[in-house]
């Protein structure tokens, strides 16, 4: 039986580590040809090679800065010329910084919007033209539950994720005639390395938020990856413009 994403050509941004790496692993396990992007190569080469062998597919590192339009365009063209198509892009690369409102500097705000928002629009603009050549494709944008409900200390970050959510809805409507689907995944609290650092500093506050998770546990990167894989697959072929909360029922 074919795997869920068998032979689909996918690009995951911010896949050097964390949730992006786990999404790439899920996609490869599901049979996709996966291009993993990050700003630095680090261990991506060796990881890609072992992942390719383990899942009998092709995993290819692709280094570029998503805020560099020229490099982004060249990267997408590389994939297109090599594979003849691009089926799915997961826009995962993002800057996460938690700061109280009075501590947010203009330069940090600009950097966050450049990576978290403007680069995603750039990606949508360029990649949608390549996808349309082959009759369609899909985008999965990583938002955040804070973009929906807000969070103290995350005014800047949640602003960028709120932008992702509205962008997803508008782009879905605009790209639907080209048979391109655009959806977002909005993770709740996810147990990552970053979470462990935050927990060390703000354990009590975080504990009170964990108590509000109806399913009684933290999310895992695998939970997020599973949602992305579903939205990238043909099983979601009639789903577009949606924001899928993956938060253990924390928002209700």
């Amino acid at each position: 039986m074919d795997r869920l994403l068998e032979k689909k050509v996918c690009l995951i941004t911010g896949a050097g580590r964390g949730i992006g790496r786990v999404i790439a692993d899920r996609f490869a396990r599901d049979g996709a040809i996966v291009y993993i992007n990050d700003i630095k190569l680090e261990d991506m080469d060796s990881w890609a090679e072992s992942c390719s062998q383990l899942y009998r597919t092709k995993v290819v590192p692709l280094c570029f800065d998503v805020t560099d339009s020229v490099a982004l365009k060249a990267g997408l063209m590389d994939i297109y010329k090599t594979e003849g198509k691009i089926d799915c892009i997961v826009n995962n690369a993002a800057i996460i910084a938690n700061q109280k409102l009075g501590m947010v500097t203009k330069s940090l705000l600009e950097r966050m919007f450049n990576v978290n928002v403007f680069a995603v629009i750039d990606m949508l603009q360029i990649a949608s033209r390549l996808m349309s050549r082959n009759g369609g494709g899909c985008f999965v944008n990583i938002a955040s539950i804070t973009g929906i409900v807000g969070s103290p200390g995350q005014v800047a970050y949640s602003s960028t994720k709120g932008a992702i959510i509205s962008m997803t809805k508008s782009a879905a409507k605009e790209l639907a005639p080209l048979h391109i689907r655009v959806n977002a995944v909005a993770p709740g609290i996810v147990k990552t390395e970053r979470f462990d650092e935050l927990y060390a500093d703000h354990g009590e506050t975080i504990d009170s938020r964990i108590e509000k998770i109806a399913l009684g546990r933290l999310g895992t990167p695998e939970d997020i990856a599973n949602a992305c894989s579903f939205l990238a697959s043909d099983r979601a072929s009639y789903i577009s413009g949606q924001v899928l909360g993956v938060d253990g029922c924390a928002t209700i």
């Binding site: 365009k73 997408l76 063209m77 360029i126 033209r129 349309s132 050549r133």
Partner: peptide, 10 residues
């Protein structure tokens, strides 16, 4: 899209 595809440009 047609122009880009035909002439292999972006």
């Amino acid at each position: 899209t047609s122009i880009e595809e035909t002439f292999d440009i972006m």
